[in-house]
Structures are given as structure tokens and as C-alpha cells.
């Protein structure tokens, strides 16, 4: 049975191997250069007064499209696996009637399904594993410079590094097989698989991932780092910052001295005038910050610390693995009883 599955799956498997090879080669060629530039830049900025912030921004900026492109490709991989490997796996046999040939050989139909699911499913997970390994390695200098703009716990970076892509691939594949089995036609099954998988991929970081652990809430005084700018008439635009670089900030608000939420900080004109007279922009910002603190404004933030990255990776992979196992179990039951 494994032979038959391999014989059917050979084409798609070789194609995937080819795509991964090209992708891997591209990363292997550009990766060392990227790491080199990063190392040079870091050692170059070590002595500077403002630290490496400017270098890191520039470094990320100049590689941003590659950073997002590579991450995006890996984000797409599980969806494509569900679409092209999962959905047609059983649906095409049902559609063309070949299941009648397969099931009337001297082999139980559950073994037929087991061979299919095991071989193609493991290949799906392996492909995602290779993909994430390559991307995690390639992007590590960029990830280090992107702690603020793209925290590791959030959306695209979290979903395309570490071990979660393997869980995504397993789930997408199992989802495709299940939908194909129920819909019994390859093309509609592919469309439906894509739609459902996309919904799950949106729901996960929006509703589930923030709940994986109790978020931390801090109230902190202002510093020049979390005041974005000063507007007309002394309105301060603030930005949530927490002491933990790379933290995933879920929500933040500015509260006044009575604990009420305020949309913006409105500094009195007298204080603004005083700060305007500061000799340098840096000192002006310092003056504004001090004033805000003196008036009792505080920044409140709810976040997940960066240290939760691996626990979250394992938890989310576990959730997807459990979903994949559940769907696979359903497929076996359905094949035995209902198909």
C-alpha cells in the first residue's frame, strides 16, 4: 500500500523537494552575507552614544522586503500543503472512482488510508520542518534587529519560526483530507480547505494565542522612549513600551493621576512654553516627559514577556497537533463506517 501511495505521491513530492531546494539554496547563498553584515554593524556601533538603535533600524529597513517575503512564503507553505496534498488525497479517488479499485484489493481500506495519511502527512511535516529550520536560521540577524517592529510572539514572525510551521502543516493536511472526504470532489474541497485554514490561522493569533497564558500588566512612568511626538498645543502622542524588549504588547493605555483612561496627554501651556525654551530637542523631550510624569500620567500595558516565546511555540504546536490528530481519527472512523 505504501508503494501505491508513493507511486501516486511521487510527482508532488519531487516538486516540493525541488521548490524547497531552490528556496533553501537562495537562503543558503544570502544567509551568511546577512549574518556578516549584522555582525559588522553591531561591532561598528558598539561605541556609539545612542547604542545600535540606528544601525538596527537601517539594517531591518534595507532587508524588509526579503524579510517579509521569506516569512510570507513559509506562512503560505502549510496552506499549499493542505490545498494540494490534503484535499485531493481522498477526494480525487472518490471523484474518479479509483477507490473502488483500491478497496477491492486484498487490503483493508483503513490500511489504504493509513498509508496515505502517514506517508503524505509525514512528508508535509518534514517539508514544513525543513522550511522553518532554513528560515529561522536565515532570519535570525533580522529577527534580532526587529524586536520592536516585529516582536517574536506576534503574527508573521511567530508563525514562520521555530516549530509551529510543522504543527500548521500537519493540521492543514489533516483538514484537507477530512474536507476532501466529506465533499468528495477535489476542487471544491481545495477551496473549502483554504477558506477554513485561513480562518483558523486568523483566529489563532487573534483569539487563542493571547490566552495561552495570563498576560502581564504593568504601569510605568514615561521616558523619552514611549513618547512618540508632541503635537499642536502640547498634545502628547504616546506609544506603549515595556521594559522587556521583544515583548508582545496586547493593549496599552494612558491613565491620568486618578486612574482614568485618557486618549492623549494634554500638557498645560505654561509647561509647554518652559519646555520649548530648552536648548536642544533632546532636552525638550526630557522636559516634556518629566512634566507628564510630574502631573501623574502613567502608561499601562498588557503584554506577554518575550521569554514566553518557546512555551507559546510548544503550546500552539500542541493545539494544532491535537486538531490534526482529531481530524485524522475522524477520517478513519468515517472511512470505516460511512464512506
Amino acid at each position: 500500500m505504501i508503494w501505491l501511495t508513493w507511486r501516486q505521491f511521487r510527482g508532488p513530492a519531487l516538486m516540493m523537494a525541488g521548490v524547497l531546494t531552490v528556496f533553501g539554496a537562495a537562503l543558503a547563498l544570502t544567509g551568511p552575507g546577512l549574518a556578516d553584515d549584522y555582525a559588522k554593524g553591531i561591532s561598528g556601533c558598539a561605541g556609539h552614544a545612542d547604542g545600535c538603535a540606528r544601525f538596527l533600524d537601517r539594517f531591518l529597513d534595507s532587508h524588509q522586503s526579503a524579510f517579509l517575503g521569506v516569512s510570507g512564503l513559509l506562512l503560505l507553505l502549510p496552506a499549499l500543503i493542505g490545498l494540494f496534498w490534503g484535499a485531493p488525497l481522498v477526494a480525487r479517488e472518490l471523484e474518479t472512482g479509483t477507490f473502488r479499485m483500491a478497496w477491492t484489493q486484498s487490503v483493508r481500506r483503513t490500511r489504504w488510508l493509513a498509508a496515505k495519511v502517514a506517508l503524505v502527512g509525514l512528508a508535509a511535516m518534514a517539508a514544513a520542518g525543513i522550511g522553518t529550520l532554513a528560515v529561522t536560521w536565515w532570519a535570525s540577524p533580522l529577527d534580532k534587529s526587529a524586536v520592536d517592529s516585529y516582536p517574536r510572539l506576534e503574527a508573521i514572525v511567530f508563525a514562520t519560526r521555530g516549530i509551529v510551521p510543522v504543527g500548521y502543516a500537519a493540521f492543514a493536511f489533516a483538514l484537507g483530507v477530512t474536507v476532501g472526504m466529506l465533499v468528495r470532489r477535489a476542487l471544491p474541497a481545495m477551496a473549502l480547505t483554504l477558506a477554513v485554514f485561513a480562518l483558523v490561522q486568523i483566529a489563532m493569533p487573534t483569539f487563542v494565542r493571547p490566552q495561552l497564558a495570563e498576560p502581564v500588566t504593568t504601569t510605568s512612568a514615561f521616558s523619552t522612549r514611549n513618547i512618540d511626538g508632541v503635537g499642536e498645543g502640547g498634545l502628547l502622542h504616546t506609544q506603549a513600551r515595556v521594559a522587556d524588549p521583544g515583548a508582545w504588547i496586547l493593549s496599552s493605555r494612558t491613565v491620568d493621576k486618578d486612574g482614568r483612561t485618557v486618549p492623549l496627554i494634554d500638557l498645560p501651556d505654561a509647561d509647554m512654553a518652559r519646555c520649548d525654551r530648552a536648548p536642544s530637542p533632546g532636552e525638550a523631550m526630557q522636559c516634556v516627559t518629566d512634566t507628564a510624569n510630574r502631573l501623574g500620567y502613567r502608561q499601562e500595558a498588557t503584554y506577554h514577556p518575550a521569554s514566553r516565546y518557546w512555551p507559546f511555540q510548544w503550546a500552539e504546536t500542541g493545539i494544532y497537533a491535537a486538531l490534526a490528530l482529531g481530524l485524522t481519527g475522524f477520517c478513519f472512523w468515517w472511512t470505516k463506517r460511512r464512506l
Partner: peptide, 22 residues
């Protein structure tokens, strides 16, 4: 089966191999 389905991508020899193995 009705309409005698066969695996379109597999060769005649593949079908015999399929039967032999199963």
C-alpha cells in the same frame, strides 16, 4: 466497477505492480 476506473497517472505496469503488492 462501473466505468472501470483506473489510476490515470499510473502506467499499465504500475497497475499490475499494484495488484501484485496488494
Amino acid at each position: 466497477a462501473q466505468d472501470t476506473p483506473a489510476y490515470a497517472r499510473l502506467t499499465v505496469a504500475d497497475h499490475l505492480a499494484l495488484g501484485r503488492r496488494l
